[in-house]
Every structure is written in structure tokens, then in C-alpha cells.
């Protein structure tokens, strides 16, 4: 079987206990178990992490960059969602 026909897996690594898993890259593999082993060999050779997640790329549903404006609205018209919007007297401004 050629490399192209193997499924692509996305790799997420937790660098230390207590932190979120972060996306680090992807690889081809013939099964999730193998993807995990390859990820170990590829991505954490220098103690970059304590835990790995692999997920087949096709199982990720993603938003599209070009839709950002409509889909991931920055809500710039709602400045009151930010703490800095509220003007308080100096002596209590560290609230």
C-alpha cells in the first residue's frame, strides 16, 4: 500500500500536566494505535510532552478561514464585554 492511501492523523501533545493538548502536526498511519506510536517517535523525542492525542483528519470539522468575518465575529461592536470598557475611579481601578 502506498503512503498516499494511508489515513492522515492530526497530532496533539500535552507538554505538561495541567495544560491543554496543543496541535503539533500530522502524519500518515494504518491505524489509530500506530498513529500514536508514530507520533511518539516523531513528535516527542525530546520530552516535549506527557500525553498524545491522535485523531483522523477527516473526523475534524473545521471552520473556513474565508468565512471568518461572518462566522468568527470579533464582536467589535460589543466593547462592553471587555473589562477596559468600564471607567472606574483610580483608587479602585485594579478591580
Amino acid at each position: 500500500m502506498s503512503q498516499e492511501h494511508l489515513a492522515v492523523y492530526e497530532v496533539f501533545v500535552r507538554s505538561a500536566r495541567g495544560l491543554d493538548h496543543k496541535h503539533v502536526g500530522s502524519l500518515h498511519a494504518e491505524s489509530p494505535e500506530h498513529a500514536l506510536m508514530y507520533a511518539r517517535d516523531c513528535y516527542i523525542r525530546r520530552s516535549e510532552g506527557v500525553s498524545i492525542w491522535v485523531v483522523e483528519s477527516k473526523n475534524i470539522t473545521a471552520s473556513q478561514e474565508e468565512d471568518t468575518e461572518n462566522f468568527v465575529d470579533p464582536m467589535d461592536d460589543k466593547p462592553y464585554r471587555h473589562a477596559t470598557h468600564y471607567v472606574l475611579p483610580d483608587s479602585v481601578n485594579n478591580m
Partner: peptide
Amino acid sequence: ESFHQRQGYEIMY
């Protein structure tokens, strides 16, 4: 949560 307390204080003020 940072804005929650400040908006409350602003009302009180």
C-alpha cells in the same frame, strides 16, 4: 469574568 465585577461597581458608583 473580569468585566462582570466592574460593570456592577459602575452601576453602584
